[in-house]
């Protein structure tokens, strides 16, 4: 089990002053948007205050067929050292294939073969990272055919074979439950919760019967309910609110953080 983090929010340049003012215990930064040489003043200020800043990557493409880009891993590791971060994270997905960048976090086919590729890439990244790597479940709108494992088992085997940490996004889990019929309880039972680094909570919107994980809307009560189901099993080391667009007033973000704290209490 990792050290206690508390409740945090995603640091974004547009809301830097808001994040500084909110009652948060830790923040997460999108690794690709920062440069080790010139970190934003706001991020440095949070570090000075002792607020943990966790780099979160979106571009390692660990599930991709191509070997992991050593430059991207080095950047992530450099950022972790510059920020004194206890660990870094990316997603169980691929973003590039055949040299093309999809710009999206694409879900992996849940086959042994895909798992082997993922495990090899994760191990390669881990070898070059100065801190542990946590991996996050993504939201999928479609499922690849011929899946051999449930999502929970897929993640459990990934942890078994790489000893990585888990970053559970309850909004993504809700999205998969809503859109693909993933069994939330079973997912939470199957994953090794003792390897949980922290949890993501995000807002989204339902449109024509499909839940969209937008990070630009309020957090739905249903997502908080998934967090509650997780909380019933374990007291998570950290829970982080992700908001990436259409930022509401400070008070509204504070309200969402309070709602998260209420679920954890």
């Amino acid at each position: 089990m990792v050290d206690k983090l508390g409740v945090g929010i995603g640091w974004r340049p547009e809301i830097d002053l808001t994040v500084e003012q909110l009652d948060v215990d830790f923040v997460e930064v999108v690794a690709e948007n920062l440069h080790v040489g010139h970190l934003p003043e706001s991020v440095l200020l949070l570090r000075e205050r002792g607020v943990p800043v966790l780099p979160h990557a979106v571009s390692l493409s660990l599930g991709g067929a191509e070997p992991v880009d050593a430059g991207r891993v080095a950047h992530l590791g450099g950022l972790a050292e510059a920020l004194g971060a206890p660990f870094v994270s990316d997603h169980v997905c691929f973003v590039r294939a055949g040299g093309l960048d999809s710009g999206h976090l694409m879900p992996l086919p849940r086959t042994r073969e895909a798992l082997d590729v993922l495990v090899a890439n994760v191990k390669a990244a881990q070898a070059d990272l100065p801190v542990p790597l946590a991996l996050e479940n993504v939201a999928a709108l479609l499922e690849w055919p011929d899946g051999e494992l449930t999502e929970g088992r897929f993640l459990a085997e990934l942890v078994e074979r790489t000893d990585c940490l888990l970053l559970v996004d309850v909004a993504n889990l809700y999205a998969n439950a809503r859109n693909l019929g993933t069994d939330v309880g079973r997912f939470l039972d199957e994953i090794p919760l003792e390897r949980l680094a922290y949890v993501h909570v995000a807002g989204g919107v339902e449109h024509q019967g499909v839940y969209h994980d937008t990070h630009a809307h309020a957090v739905l009560p249903e997502v908080l309910d998934v967090l509650k189901q997780l909380r019933d099993r374990i007291d998570p080391p950290g829970v982080l609110l992700e908001r990436d667009d259409d930022y509401p007033a400070d008070a509204e973000l504070a309200g969402e953080l309070a709602a998260i704290r209420a679920v954890l209490a």
């Binding site: 340049p13 547009e14 809301i15 002053l17 808001t18 706001s42 259409d246 007033a249």
Partner: peptide
């Protein structure tokens, strides 16, 4: 009016209101 916020580095962005 709380309709925009100005970030530390000077980005003025609309607030959802």
């Amino acid at each position: 009016a709380g309709a925009v916020r100005i970030s530390r580095n000077g980005v003025v962005s609309p607030v959802r209101t």
